[in-house]
Nucleic acid binder design. Structure first.
Lengths: 159, 159
DNA sequence: ACCAAATTAATTGCGTACAATGTACTAGAA
DNA sequence: TTCTAGTACATTGTACGCAATTAATTTGGT
């Protein structure tokens, strides 16, 4: 008996909500960071480095969830613009150490102040902000541990 | 007197939570849709068309929140793979009407069934899923209405 | 009807994302 | 030591995402 499959409506999908919200935040940060000529992925790279510098490309990638294929060209652009320095590790030449430039160290307070001012535009109180973030992180954890490859597709699912 | 600026930690940022969760969902769907050779943006394009076909590129873009620069090449790829048809509007030749192919119409039940099965892996009950989605949409609305360009950057914010 | 302004797609260029592959290097086993 | 995995990063190829520009077309004022 062919059970009718549950309908899927675009505007009801959690994935679409995340996809859309993420793009809007990206656009928001693009404007907030424009005075510094930083993109959003570059900004989170700096956030990671401001917390811990230097780091290898691998360590950095584990913090910002990006692989070398993305980070290498991104870091080269940031190097060109004077935000970071890239140096081969002397003991293990497979590794490249990424460190903050003086410019990045100096700019931190200005960037934090401007971003914080922009964030005030959201009009979200601390509690709502934190709850939203935790809710999103919870969903992110769930999805991380789900692997659709374990779901067999026979070519005639329920048909 | 220089008030110390509030610190910004990567793992406490809502934007980073959304950014990460969105990428994980993207990866999840990439695997779930692999049997159909569909990417996530292509899938949401189909979702929009299954609800309403045909649509012009502009109408479609307003549903999936993508502009022609993204949609035009995406739709051309989907046309090549036989998912959609593209036809100049006869009355207004500026517009291109996008319609579902028979293949897309036929595949809908299979795709819905497989995606729904994959979604079960998340182990989120209906209520949690809906609440998470609404929370994300609320944040997305907030960010949509915030414009950092209205925040002057003098180059010496609080310095 | 005529022409300037507005509209709509397509095109272009840059910057991510990420899988797959390649290369250089390290370290442990025989 | 030499062979073999394994590791770390770079490179390649495909696909977005979006701003800016261009081209074609329509529309609105005269």
């Amino acid at each position: 008996m062919a059970t009718p499959t549950k309908n899927i409506l675009l505007d009801e999908q959690l994935c679409f909500a995340l996809y859309t919200a993420s793009k809007r935040f990206n656009h928001f940060y693009a404007e907030a960071l424009a005075p510094f000529k930083l993109t959003y992925p570059q900004y989170i790279t700096l956030l990671a480095l401001w917390e811990n510098s230097p780091m290898t490309v691998r360590e950095l990638g584990s913090h910002v969830n990006l692989d070398s294929g993305t980070l290498t060209p991104l870091l080269k652009r940031m190097q060109t613009q004077g935000w970071v320095e890239r140096n081969r590790d002397e003991n293990d030449e497979r590794q490249v150490n990424i460190s903050l430039s003086q410019k990045a160290i100096d700019a931190k307070p200005e960037i934090f102040a401007h971003v914080n001012t922009c964030m005030d535009l959201l009009g979200m109180d601390e509690k709502t902000y934190a709850e939203t973030r935790d809710t999103v992180n919870f969903a992110g954890e769930r999805i991380k541990n789900a692997d659709p490859k374990t779901v067999p597709y026979t070519g005639d699912d329920e048909l």
